[in-house]
């Protein structure tokens, strides 16, 4: 610890102002400051080992799973809902994709080999759409609360996965899929590219389209949105289909990384996705939240997790610190308000 190099002050401050200018709003600025502070502290404690290419790359390998799942949770939170079925959807889609890829693939190359993989992914996305339609229909058209609906589909979808596989693992996927989870393209993990491929269109859809505007409005006031002439039910239906599709992509990435699929992988991620989204500035009551904030929050969570891993701390301590950070960050504006220092 004593021989750890001090991070130079100047560039640090410069970086901070750069990030600050990149991220206009208050939450993101606060998160950016927290991130820089964490990197500085961990850099001091761990030393150069924290800044090696291997560390950064391993962070980039781990982030996309939780990242894509958090986006799936986030879009429903913004609309004032919640989707508890994302993990079970991801797993069921992964199982379906893995089943086709391990049972139907002819040979290891050629047109049919590629074709069947595309079919497998299409089937996964189709299953996800069906689950999303069920969720969206019950929530939007029957008026059941999202938490209850998705609790039901979560249990049912997981039940289908367990029933079909008897709880077993399907493993041994083709190399092309394993590459998706474990390979790199010019040094960037493929999974990270997949994350970017879903995050960027989603940021555009939320920030720059009528659909995105309607999503935020529904989260703020569904009745008012309806009276302003927007078919809120259709929008809600779409939101849950998109959430499900994102879950399926997360399932694909998870399957690729573990080289296997199972009905009950990654269940502990469920509440962590809410944690990540809320830490990133998403209002759990709906109406607010930006992709940039959630990405910052994911990086923060990943930095803590990787640093604790390097320090040989238990992963459970990581969980505890994640919880503490969530309380801390959400409490700051309220404490400032209390003290009369309004942002």
């Amino acid at each position: 610890m004593s021989n750890a190099p001090h991070p130079p002050r100047g560039p640090d401050a410069a970086l901070m102002s750069l990030i600050g200018s990149l991220t206009g709003d208050v939450t993101n600025r606060r998160l950016a400051i927290l991130l820089v502070a964490l990197v500085a502290v961990f850099g001091l404690i761990i030393g150069e080992g924290f800044f090696t290419k291997a560390t950064v790359q391993s962070m980039a390998f781990q982030l996309p799973e939780l990242g894509i799942l958090s986006l799936a949770m986030m879009i429903t939170l913004i609309s004032g809902g919640l989707n508890l079925s994302i993990i079970s959807t991801a797993n069921l889609c992964a199982l379906a994709m893995a089943y086709i890829m391990t049972k139907m693939l002819p040979g290891t190359e050629g047109f049919a080999f590629v074709g069947w993989q595309i079919v497998a992914i299409a089937v996964g996305l189709l299953i996800a759409s069906i689950i999303g339609l069920v969720n969206g229909f019950i929530i939007a058209y029957l008026g059941v609360s999202p938490i209850l609906t998705t609790l039901g589909t979560m249990t049912m979808v997981k039940g289908i996965g367990i029933g079909m596989t008897r709880g077993n693992v399907i493993s041994g996927l083709p190399d092309s899929i394993v590459f998706l989870g474990n390979g790199t393209v010019v040094g960037i993990p493929t999974a990270m590219l997949v994350f970017a491929v879903v995050a960027i269109p989603m940021a555009i859809a939320l920030g720059r389209t009528p659909f995105g505007a309607a999503t935020y409005m529904i989260g703020s006031n569904e009745k008012a949105t309806q009276f302003s002439g927007i078919d809120t039910k259709r929008v809600i239906l779409r939101i849950y289909v998109i959430s499900s599709l994102l879950a399926a992509v997360a399932g694909l990435v998870m399957m690729a990384r573990f080289n296997s699929a199972n009905a009950s992988y990654a269940e502990s991620y469920l509440l962590v996705t809410i944690l990540a989204a809320v830490l990133g500035g998403v209002d759990p009551m709906g109406g607010f939240g930006k992709i940039a904030g959630v990405i910052l929050s994911l990086v923060i969570l990943q930095v803590i997790s990787s640093a604790f891993n390097l320090l040989n701390f238990s992963q459970f301590l990581t969980l505890a610190i994640w919880g503490a950070i969530l309380v801390g960050v959400t409490a700051v504006p309220n404490i400032r308000k209390r003290l009369g220092l309004i942002d």
């Binding site: 809410i274 809320v278 759990p284 459970f316 969980l319 505890a320 919880g323 969530l326 309380v327 309220n334």
Partner: peptide, 19 residues
Amino acid sequence: LNISSIIVSIATLNIFYGL
């Protein structure tokens, strides 16, 4: 601190359980 109960209890679930 005027934080919504779902956030607080998700956080404390992780804190209590993690510790």
